Simulated assay, not measured.
Amino acid sequence: MKFLFLIACIVCAVSLSMLSMIVATGRIPFRSQDANIETTEKSAEVKDEKMAGLVGQKETVDDLVLALKKEKKIYENKLGELVAREQSLSNQQEVVTLMKAELEKSRTSLSEKIVEADAAEQANLKRLSLVYSKMDPESASTLLREMTSDRAARILNLIPERQAAAILNASIATGADGTKKAADWSDVIRRMKQDKVKKGP
C-alpha cells in the first residue's frame, strides 16, 4: 500500500510540474513540432482575422467620428446663423419701435398744427367775411368767383344771410358762369350745414 501511495505521489508531482510548465510557457511540452506549428499558424490566422476586424472597425469608427465632426460643424454654423438672425430681428424690432414712437409723436404734432391751422383759417375766414359783408355785392361776387368754390362758400356761410343772398344775386347777374358758381357755392353751404347738424352743436 505504501508503494501505491508512493507511485501516486510521484505521478501527482510529475503532473503538477507539467501543469506549472504549461501555465508558465503557454505551450504543451512533448508535443510534436508540426502540432506546434499548426497551433502557431492557427493562432496567427486568428490574430490576423482579429486585427483585420479591428482595422475595419477602426475605419468605421473613424468614419463615424468624421461624420459627427461634420454634423457638429453644420450645427454650429446653423446655430450661429440663428443667433445672427435673432440679433437682426431684435435690432429691427427696436428700429420699428423707435420709428413707431417717432411717427406717433409726429402725428400728435401734426394734429396740433392742423388744429392751429384750422383755428387760424377760421379766424382768417371770419375777417374776410366781415370785409366782404361790408363791400357792395357786385365787388364781393367778383372776388369770390376768383376763389375756389369751397373757400368762397365758407366765407359766404359766415356772412349774414341778407348780404350773402345779395352776393349770390350779383353773381347770377353776371351770366352762366356766375350762375354755375352761385350753384356750386350753395351746394357747398348746404353740405356744410348738413355736416354741422350730423355732428351736433
Rank of each mutant, 00 (worst) to 15 (best):
S186F: 02
L158P: 01
P137T: 12
E146L: 05
E146Q: 04
R190H: 13
I159N: 08
P137R: 11
A164H: 06
S141W: 14
L143K: 13
G175M: 14
S186T: 11
A165H: 02
A166G: 05
A165K: 07
R162M: 07
K196I: 04
T142W: 10
R162I: 03
A173K: 15
A153C: 02
D184P: 00
W185H: 06
N169P: 00
L143I: 12
K181Y: 03
E138Q: 15
N169R: 03
T142E: 14
A140D: 05
A164Q: 10
W185A: 06
D195P: 01
S149W: 05
I172H: 09
A165F: 01
M147I: 01
L168F: 08
G175R: 12
R191H: 07
Q194N: 09
A173F: 03
Q163M: 11
A153K: 02
I159E: 07
K196L: 08
A165E: 08
R190C: 05
L158H: 08
N169W: 00
D150E: 15
A152P: 09
A153L: 04
D184W: 01
I159V: 15
N157T: 00
S141D: 11
T174Y: 12
A182G: 03
E161V: 10
P160L: 01
E161D: 15
R190V: 07
K181I: 00
N169A: 11
A173I: 00
A166W: 00
E138I: 13
T174G: 08
L143C: 10
S186Q: 08
M147K: 06
K193T: 06
N169G: 02
A176L: 08
S171F: 07
V188S: 06
S139F: 13
L144S: 11
L156S: 11
Q163R: 15
N157F: 00
G175H: 14
A164N: 09
A170V: 11
S139I: 05
L168M: 12
E138W: 15
A182E: 02
R151Y: 07
L156F: 13
R151P: 00
R145M: 14
L156T: 04
R154G: 03
S139W: 09
V188N: 03
R154Q: 09
D150N: 11
R154M: 10
D184T: 00
S171W: 06
P160Q: 07
P160C: 00
R151I: 03
N157V: 00
E138A: 14
K181C: 00
L144N: 11
S149P: 07
L168G: 05
G178D: 04
Q163F: 01
K193H: 14
S171I: 06
L143Y: 15
L158F: 04
N157E: 03
A140W: 01
S186W: 03
L144W: 10
E146T: 01
D195K: 14
M147E: 13
R162L: 10
R162K: 15
L158M: 10
S186G: 08
Q163S: 15
D184Q: 10
I189N: 03
W185Q: 05
E138K: 15
T148W: 04
K193Y: 09
A173D: 08
R145H: 05
A182W: 08
E138R: 15
L156M: 06
R154W: 01
D184L: 05
T179H: 04
L158T: 04
I172K: 14
R191L: 12
E161P: 07
I172Y: 10
T142S: 09
A183D: 13
A170E: 12
R145T: 05
S141R: 15
